[in-house]
Design a protein around this nucleic acid. Structure first.
Lengths: 336, 336
DNA sequence: TCCCGCACGTTGTACGTATAACTAGATGCT
DNA sequence: AGCATCTAGTTATACGTACAACGTGCGGGA
């Protein structure tokens, strides 16, 4: 590290090894076969190591016109679901020489200042969850290759979408509860404008409408334990016969519902069957363990990344929704 | 990599506005006062807008030598704790014109391939949790300004550290349980090599050692609900008098312990008091609600970011640990 | 009149890299 | 011998930006 404070460049390495800068680039870029002799290559590598040389990636990106980096835009990371998505995406990306950068919608930071202006520094593409809607406007302006997760395949004109088979999840839950004899349903719905939640509501309603004598009420709650608790308490205080099945839009809402039910002295599943969706760690932490639908977050991330790679290569992305699986636990029982 | 038409550059804008590229740079860089007339500036802005011009940040970074972007390195995002850290860091960063990029250790991706080589593309600094140890070796090689979170202030030579007052957390838990009359303790410790967990063990042991007649056993568990469940079950199956207080290294471990206790037919807090640490949403989702110590994740992130900004400016970072607060709930009771 | 300063730009250059195009000597083939 | 081919490099250039340095009219003060 002779040059004092500034980082060594490929030219410094070249000088140290007694070759030209181009030779350094060839050797370190692994394109030297038949262009540089082995002894010289070794000398270059040695010099690079001695100087602690790290290529300036800004310069490389500028030169190459791409970065082999993609951005994953997700909603606030309040559950481990998107951690799984990231892991899956990062795994596939790594196998193709790509890196993944995560951009969670930071809570409480207005869109006035675009907080990831510099994060976008150099990106080849974007994978975005439709739940991070606020961040999307900024993205669209960039005209980058884009893959949407959990987004309406119809509504998103031309954009590639990768979806979990949420409709099937809703159907499986409905079938399960109907088979147990339930007829009076309460739907604890997430108060979030997103396709993935719309599908739950639509499919549940459609399924129940097909069975005579069923009843469906809906109550909306913000996507938090406290919100779900309050909404559930409010809904059960209403007049009329009490529902026997409580279908929650996700596991977190179900955990909030549990709390409300405990306060009301109602027992799960004796007085009320409860279902969630996601199969988070939370689902088995609460008592009784929650009947829910397992979503394969990692596979979701993998598929998203593969779709983006396909788009970047001009290939057609893999089609088809990702299958989900009902997991029956102790929170659902035959109606009495 | 087909990107339809190539993106417009500042030169294209210049041509469209009938000025030089330098003028475009001045206007868009907000340095035009007294150098370019208002009508001309407006013409440039208009042209930039019409063409949908976005500056090439790789080129800007190369030119300026900095990026106003920092990297936040965290362990796998299996709880919302680091989401809070990110939010706090991003808020402070945004206020100073910086962006934050998140790098969670992806599970199952070996260190063989450096998965965030390109994410590091252009960074001014790094904030890293000591829990993401595997990622750190790669970081160190870059010689970037670095701030460590939850790291041994002694061991990290010269590096700036920002810590939660975990020692105080452990003390408060110990005092609380001692005051309730507990004397036989079981410590459910995270099987993770990290300073933050070492402190818990050390401080708890020190505190109990000061009180005659106390007893402390320790059992280690991987940082997951299932792991904690198994470890707790194993420990309680051992011979000898049963402990009356179970001190868990974090809330997630406590949730696992709850499950083990339920299986064994032991009741919280009647048979055993349980404490956690973190105050995640999980802490109030389980029954009974968990006595734990609240960590202010957002403040943690803010302090980390402020420290890094100080380092970048050559200033001295704010000193002092971040205070924590015991939250007493239903999982702890006087010993019977 | 001369010259200075101001308003309004432009020209030129450097950041560090990857690679196309070239060179010079050695070797092989006919 | 004459020419093609191979080896082992070098030289030159472009990526898009920010900014230092350099004009160029024009009005005004001495």
């Amino acid at each position: 590290m002779v040059r004092g404070s500034t980082r060594p460049t490929s030219r410094d390495v070249a000088q140290a090894a007694g070759v030209s800068q181009a030779a350094v680039s060839l050797v370190l870029g692994d394109k030297w076969r038949g262009r540089v002799s082995e002894p010289t290559a070794e000398r270059v590598r040695q010099a690079a190591h001695d100087l602690g040389y790290r290529p300036n990636l800004a310069a490389r990106n500028l030169r190459l016109g791409h970065t082999r980096t993609v951005l994953l835009v997700v909603p606030a990371l309040t559950t481990e679901f998107f951690a799984g998505v990231y892991t899956g995406a990062a795994r596939v990306a790594a196998a193709h020489g790509f890196g993944v950068v995560l951009y969670p919608s930071p809570e409480g930071i207005g869109p006035a200042r675009d907080p990831f202006a510099s994060a976008r520094a150099a990106l080849d593409g974007v994978i975005a969850s439709s739940m991070a809607a606020d961040a999307l406007t900024a993205i669209r302006g960039d005209q980058l290759p884009l893959v949407m997760l959990d987004s309406d395949p119809e509504g998103s004109l031309g954009t590639t979408t990768v979806n979990l088979d949420i409709a099937d999840a809703a159907r499986q839950i409905a079938e399960h509860l109907l088979a147990l004899g339930h007829r009076r349903f309460l739907h604890l719905a997430a108060d979030v404008a997103s396709w993935t939640f719309d599908v739950r509501a639509r499919e549940l309603a459609a399924r129940l409408a097909a069975v005579p004598g069923t009843e469906l009420r809906t109550v909306r709650a913000p996507l938090s334990i406290e919100g779900a608790q309050a909404a559930t308490a409010g809904a059960l205080a209403a007049a009329g016969p009490r529902p026997t099945a409580l279908v929650c839009d996700d596991d977190k809402l179900a955990a909030g519902a549990y709390k409300a039910l405990r306060r009301l002295g109602l027992r799960v599943p004796d007085d009320l069957s409860v279902t969630g969706l996601d199969d988070l760690a939370l689902a088995t932490a609460i008592d009784p363990e929650l009947t829910t639908v397992r979503l394969d977050a990692e596979l979701f991330g993998e598929r998203g990344m593969r779709a983006l790679l396909a788009v970047l290569d001009g290939r057609t992305p893999e089609a088809g929704d990702i299958p989900v699986q009902l997991v029956v636990r102790g929170s659902t029982a035959p109606v009495r």
